[in-house]
Design a protein around this nucleic acid. Sequence first.
DNA 1: CCAAACTGTCACCGAACTGTCACCATCTGC
DNA 2: GCAGATGGTGACAGTTCGGTGACAGTTTGG
Lengths: 236, 236
Amino acid sequence: MSRLEPQAGAALVLVVDDEPAQRALLSYNLEAAGFRVLTAQDGEEALLVIAEEAPDVILLDWMLPRVSGIEVCRQIRARPEAQGSAVIMVSARSEEGDLVRGLETGADDYITKPYSVSELLARVRANLRRVRPSQSGAVLEVGDLRLDAQAHRVHRGARDVHLGPTEFRLLAALMERSGKVWSREALLDRVWGRDIYVDSRTVDVHIGRLRKTLCAGGEQDPIRTIRGAGYAIEDR
Amino acid sequence: MSRLEPQAGAALVLVVDDEPAQRALLSYNLEAAGFRVLTAQDGEEALLVIAEEAPDVILLDWMLPRVSGIEVCRQIRARPEAQGSAVIMVSARSEEGDLVRGLETGADDYITKPYSVSELLARVRANLRRVRPSQSGAVLEVGDLRLDAQAHRVHRGARDVHLGPTEFRLLAALMERSGKVWSREALLDRVWGRDIYVDSRTVDVHIGRLRKTLCAGGEQDPIRTIRGAGYAIEDR
DNA sequence: CCAAACTGTCACCGAACTGTCACCATCTGC
DNA sequence: GCAGATGGTGACAGTTCGGTGACAGTTTGG
């Protein structure tokens, strides 16, 4: 496996582990596979990072000092910003009770030590595929809309629709969670990136442009405006 | 665990296994946990069922006659109707290569035999939570009222109800604790926020508007006024 | 190097939403 | 039945919010 440069659009993985050596090992392997990696050494730090960066996948060590992993997991799941993240618990124990408790608490998956690098990466990718379908070349479908992330192509029914880069990412975000209401801030984060500063009204303008293009054939508007809250895309 | 009747809204699980005894065992346990269950004895039958019923979760045995589970998994993933399903591979072998191949092929999860019933159910539920987020959480229901916080949407029976932001939050508060009597002050706190000061009669006006909208189809008023105390919403 | 495509911001407008009031119907205790 | 308290509601005016055309700056592709 060759070393890849993490790109701006690469998936973001948060590693939560109290042992520096573990963090370094995981980070190294994940970065080598092209992921962007953040680390935290305890639950408290993890929650801070999550609030700021909204990682796509969270690797959470079971044995944390002070607060147990399961408790951290529960806290993470209680945060609205973390709804879009997948949580993978990492544990030295393979006792079934732990597994069950972990999953019931809201973890999405579970890896038992010792694990191989390929298993780790497979798990991370499998979860990523679920949480961020558009980042893994999947084809998203909502109603008569089809978005092929790999081919960078959008169809409305039989019609081929051309979108600019921003509108494309915007539509991909909306379609990834159809029905979910995205606030303007969440969309800015997701589509424009965390550190870019643009006026939140800019989202409106792009939504307008997106609507115009999507409905150029006289179709019904698939984007719903929720006054005071944001936008959502919907099947009907 | 007591035996539950599978309800109309219950999640649908497809069990694919060639051994009748296995199918029966899995079906029994899943049904006992309240799931609706379908079965198929090979990949071909599975694909037929998937096309017709679009199950939420598919439990796929690795060792199938004629066509291997991994091949079936690939075929399932190729079907657009199966995009909304989670695939859990069930295997007797725990070799890592299989796991990796399974996940890379598009399986969402993996259970190794022997597994316990609680592990099975935990896995199914965890995957369900991902695939059908609305079936496990943010939806409030009281009588024929349904409020989906994620989608910011309200239904009265089959009718789609449109509410303004304030009415939406007001209804959400009432529904969150159905039966509880909310004083005007408590509602002001909860819906308008602690530091905003508005006349407490304003609550009355919004309750009135809410009632009008909720009963626009001639339905019964779901909001009860408790003279001298406040308001409550109720199932009846 | 130029034209076309794409972006972000602004200003303006209409629609939606809000809070308050006045007036009336009910209810409560006496 | 009466007076006072309580709750329902239509009207209204002020405010906020979202849609959109215009425009200028920037990037892209040939």
